[in-house]
Design a protein around this nucleic acid. Structure first.
Lengths: 231, 231
DNA sequence: GTCTATATATTGATAGAC
DNA sequence: GTCTATCAATATATAGAC
């Protein structure tokens, strides 16, 4: 099954996040305001995903966004707010594929499309992947609570689905948690360690086709041997 | 097969790296000098692995090392030199397990111990793993040449071994490059994304046993289905 | 070898003219 | 809304006393 272009929201975050928390007057945003914020967030994603929160500077972001530093700060008064906007938007989008795993679907089909979507996201949105990886390396100070509540809850739910499939004899018994970790690790590796992957593959195999190859390898790795009948 | 305590050099780097490049007089280092440098490198590993090169500050490192900033700079005149020392020492140690894969050994045994050693390193030396991950996320500006020469050469060599095993019918045919990437990704995930792993597993499964569970899962994932006879 | 003091540049953020 | 000018804090690194 070939990789397709994934349709995914760009990092925007809920509209709710834009409104001032005080909201003395919930004033509607102009189109230009939204567009400028969009440009800033796009530039910030570039810088934060490469350098991490501390390593990134407002100067770099402003330059990448093509505006002056004070001008940027007019739209986002604090560096941290840009970062938080990116993180929440990213988390939301990043977990969408996992949410879609359907207990009523065919196990192998469900897992196969999960793996495929994850590798597509690494191919199409590597910066979001790196942004998250950077946050993790730092110990996740700004998302730890989300991980322990929302993420854990979501994973637990999907683990139960997978255990149901095992109980029903639909797939071979394995450790669902570590299977999910392994799918995350392998698929995101192609975004986070892209330099290394391309350096090792060289120019003959390091082109765009590497994602196809990876998808094929990973689908086989995780799905082969999962069907009880095969043995 | 249970995990054992791995024996590994601490980040020290070759002795050659210590000598001044000019070496007007190749003066031997005193014991105290080496010990102080050791303390600094240990502290620097802590900070760099969490914050990346740009995000880390000499202040943080000096405080972690329990000395003043000028005192630290007496031993390492530039921030970049501390970082480079850590990187070269890390790379050397980090690739040791891959180097040990032996073409004359039994394929499954060789791969099993490779996986086991890699997960042991994530357990015992998570900071080294994160240091490297941080460098990769930034695009590997300080190691790109090493990746393209030494690392690629090493991987190519081991890929040839694996292809030899496949040609001889000793293991099932698969993509050796992506297999190696997947082993790297999955094992290092337990160091790099440690926060996430522990958050998801919760307190019941997130203890030290998680490395045992991971090792068991990964050995099965990569090795099951590799023997032609099993099918 | 270690310290205080400091030079110099860069950082996040603000003031105020236009 | 956008700019120049600038502040206060922090950054890397050095000078020089002890």
């Amino acid at each position: 099954m070939p990789l397709i272009k994934v349709k995914m929201l760009e990092a925007e975050g809920g509209q709710g996040a834009v409104k001032p928390t005080g909201r003395k007057r919930a004033r509607a945003q102009t189109r230009i305001q939204r567009e400028k914020q969009e440009v800033i967030l796009e530039a910030a994603l570039d810088v934060f995903s490469r350098e991490g929160f501390r390593g990134a500077t407002i100067d770099q972001i402003a330059e990448a966004a093509g505006m002056s530093k004070p001008n940027l700060l007019y739209y986002f008064p604090r560096k941290e707010e840009i970062y938080k906007r990116l993180m929440t938007a990213m988390l939301d989008v990043w977990l969408a594929p996992l949410r879609e795993i359907d207990s009523d679907g065919d196990p192998v089909t469900e897992l196969r499309s999960y793996i495929r979507r994850k590798i597509e996201m690494s191919r199409d949105y590597p910066r979001q992947s790196r942004l998250f990886a950077n946050e993790m390396l730092q110990g996740g100070p700004r998302v730890l609570d989300v991980l322990e509540t929302d993420l854990k809850g979501l994973v637990d739910e999907k683990v139960q689905i997978m255990e149901g499939w095992m109980d029903a004899g639909k797939i071979v018994r394995t450790d669902p948690y570590h299977m999910i970790f392994s799918i995350w690790a392998t698929t995101q590796h192609y975004a986070d360690f892209d330099v290394q992957v391309r350096a090792v593959l060289g120019k003959d195999r390091g082109g765009e086709g590497r994602f196809e190859d990876a998808a094929r390898y990973l689908e086989n790795l995780f799905l082969h041997g999962l069907l009880p009948k095969e043995r």
